[in-house]
Structure formats: C-alpha cells, structure tokens
Design a binder for these strands. Structure first.
Lengths: 206, 206
DNA sequence: TGCGCTAATGAATGATCGTTCATGCACTGG
DNA sequence: CCAGTGCATGAACGATCATTCATTAGCGCA
C-alpha cells in the first residue's frame, strides 16, 4: 500500500533508500550527526524507525555512506572539470571556480564531509581521510606546477593549499541564494582573489 | 576533605568551576556539544554528575558561558593588539597575525565558538551572532579604510572579509605543535599571503 | 494463480540522556 | 565552639537513544 503510494507519488522504485539519504543528509548538516535521531530521519521519510535498518545497517553506516559517496563524487567531478595538464594559472582558476560552485550547489554534503570526521569510527575515518587527502593533493599539484614554472608566487605550498581550501570552503557559511550576488559572481570574485594572491609581480622581466 | 586535596594539589579556591569549564571546553571541541554528556564532563573533573549543577544551571548554560566568554575575550584581545587608526596595511597585517596566533593558542575556544552556533537555543544564539558580527566588522573596517585610501585592491569588501576569516580560521584544522613550522612562521606566511592578495599593482603611479 | 522476496511495521530491549533533590560533610565567621 | 553555608553526593526521575526482531503486507515472476 505504502509502496503503491510511493510509486504513484513520483519516485519509481528504490526511492525509500534515496529518501533516507536525503533526509539524513539534510538533518546531519543542519544539526550534526550526534544530535539527530533515527526516529527523526524515519519521520521525515515517512516510515517508522525500524524501517531504516532495511537499507542501512546502522546509523554510523549511514553516515559513512553519505560521506564517502560525496567525496568520491567530488573527486570525479573535479577531474572532469579540471584537466590534468596545461597552464597552471588556468587550471587553478578552474579549480577555484569548480570548488566554489560545487560547494554552493551541494552545501550539505560538503558540510558533513568536512565537519563530521570526528563522528566517524576508526574504519570509516581512515577511508575518509584518504579521500580528503586526495582532493587536497589535486590542488597542491597545481600549485607546485605553477611554482616550478615561475608563474606563482608561493612561500609554502602545503600551507597555501590548506589556506586556499579553507577560504573557498568557507563560502558555504555565509552564502545564501537570492542574496546580493549570484553563485557565478561569487565564484568569479573568489577566483580573482586567489589569482591575485598568487600572481608573480608583473614587473618580471626574465 | 576533597576541598583540602584540591587546595593542596594546586588550584586555590573556586577551582571546581574552572575545572568544569576546562573539561567541557575540551570535550565539546573534541566531539561536539550534543555528543558530550554531563557525566563525562563530571568524570574528567573528578566529581559526580550532580555536582556540575552547583556551578551551572544547565548544559546549555554551560555552553553559552563558554562561547560568550571566549568571544568577549577575543574582542578585547583584538582591540589591544590592533590599534583603531593608522596605516590600513599595517593594521591588516596585525589583524592577520593576531587572528592566526590567537586561534593557534586557543583552538578549542575558537572551534566551539564557530561550530556550536547550531547547538544554541534562541537567546544565546542572538547574543553570539552579535559578537561574531562585531569581530567581522573590525576586519571590514580595515578593508574599507584601505580601499578608500587606494592601497587595497578589493572587488567586494564583505566577500573578501568572509573569505579571509575563513582562510585564517582554517589554520586550526591542520596545524599541530611540533610540526614543520612554528606558530610565528605560520602567522607570517598567512600575513604574507593576505597582504599579497590585496596589494594594488606596484606599477601604480597616480 | 501462487510462490518468494523485499521492505515496512510496531513493540520491546537495555543503555544513556539531562536534571532534580534529599542528605551530609567540611569549612568559615562570630 | 557552634551555627551557617557552600558544595559534593548518589539515587532516582522520565525521556529518549540505537538497535533487534517476529510478523505481515505487497510486489515481480513463474
């Protein structure tokens, strides 16, 4: 009966699992993993508490599933948006625009992946840290390439990379749709800030 | 008896309240407010759960006390380190160094004040948001002053301010004492990054 | 048509949560 | 030396937590 309703109301088949993911994602992002109960998630989906365990083994497994899924999707999207080779300046600008736009498009996923590391048990923590490191590594590679070619003025690549990522990710803490600026405008401003902070002096001659 | 021990072991008088504050601060920062129980806090202090209520009316009151105390101390320390007037470039460099060093010195306070806003009930939330706004306003004033004088290249002051604060605050997510760099070195690197990102072209002539 | 599987139920489990409170100890001021 | 007070105790409160499970309903496939 419920299933019939679900089918009629729109989502075709395995919609319950996706509905649980969406509900949990939104609730975890809003109030934090420990503050959200399985009952709340079930209530938002429209099922009873026990039903979640037909799709996820535990609350922790649900969290790991969300975080890992997001990080893998993020890496795939990044590699699709930013080519492996080419002009480091261009690649950096693309990285910045990609990062800002992706984070403004999927703020909940991003927020969870960066904030709920402390809620992970050892196994999931290890896997997530590796995915995070891989993402940061993409940026470090670009910075190093630019440094080697002499087109970036960088004192310390690892510090600069962490500083840039923190700055870009922080956009999610203040941006709201419908405000003074569009997402594209914000991405452009950030790209401009980053490029200016790295450009070597224009008086270079060599 | 217990009090005698406490006196002998070091802390003079009202040490229990401070011990509760320290324990709660550390635990909230490590695992988040909802994930920490009053029993755990009491255990770390060395008292029973009920004892906390002799010093704080509720868990929520304890959180508000910690967050508000930190933000007020932060504002006082900022105003002591960065003069109200003078060269905007110098004031910005001082702001950056102050922010980074303060955040590296008191990472737990900082982390809680920025992350546990969502754990606050309406009353405390209003007060904390105002304190946060006041701190950000200090930076915006510096950026505006530099923009007026033509010594800063800024596309959008509010966006730039939020971007800078996010970048600087993010230092707490990766820095660990005893690593490759000292706190002072990190502060210098960040100051250099920020100043470079704002400096107008050196070819300026007017 | 009927079999089998997937998934939802709803009650029950034991644990843990924040908070209250009557009790009593230890110290301080008179 | 005694009264008063500040503070820790530890048991108890009702509520809520994640999780389990026997049961059942409904669907696709034969």
């Amino acid at each position: 009966m419920l299933k019939s309703e679900a089918v009629i109301s729109g989502h075709p088949k395995a919609s319950t699992k996706q509905a649980i993911e969406r509900a949990a994602l939104s609730l975890f992002a809003e109030r934090g993993y420990p503050a959200v109960s399985m009952r709340e998630i079930a209530e938002r989906v429209g099922i009873r508490q026990g039903g979640i365990y037909n799709h996820f083994g535990s609350k922790q497994a649900l969290l790991v599933h969300l975080m890992e899924g997001h990080m893998r999707a993020l890496l795939v999207a990044l590699d699709a948006s930013v080519p492996k080779g080419g002009d480091p300046r261009q690649r950096l600008a693309q990285f910045v625009r990609f990062h800002v736009l992706y984070h403004l498009t999927q703020p909940d996923d991003v927020f969870i992946a960066y904030m709920e590391l402390r809620s992970l048990e050892p196994d999931g923590l290890t896997r997530l840290k590796e995915l995070r490191r891989a993402y940061e590594e993409r940026l470090r590679r670009i910075l190093e390439a630019g440094q080697r070619l002499g087109v970036f003025a960088i004192t310390d690549v690892p510090v600069q990379a962490m500083g840039l990522i923190a700055m870009l990710t922080g956009v999610t803490t203040w941006y709201h749709d419908g405000g003074r600026l569009t997402r594209e405008e914000v991405a452009d401003i950030y790209a401009e800030m980053v490029m200016r902070s790295l450009d070597v002096e224009e008086t270079e001659k060599s």
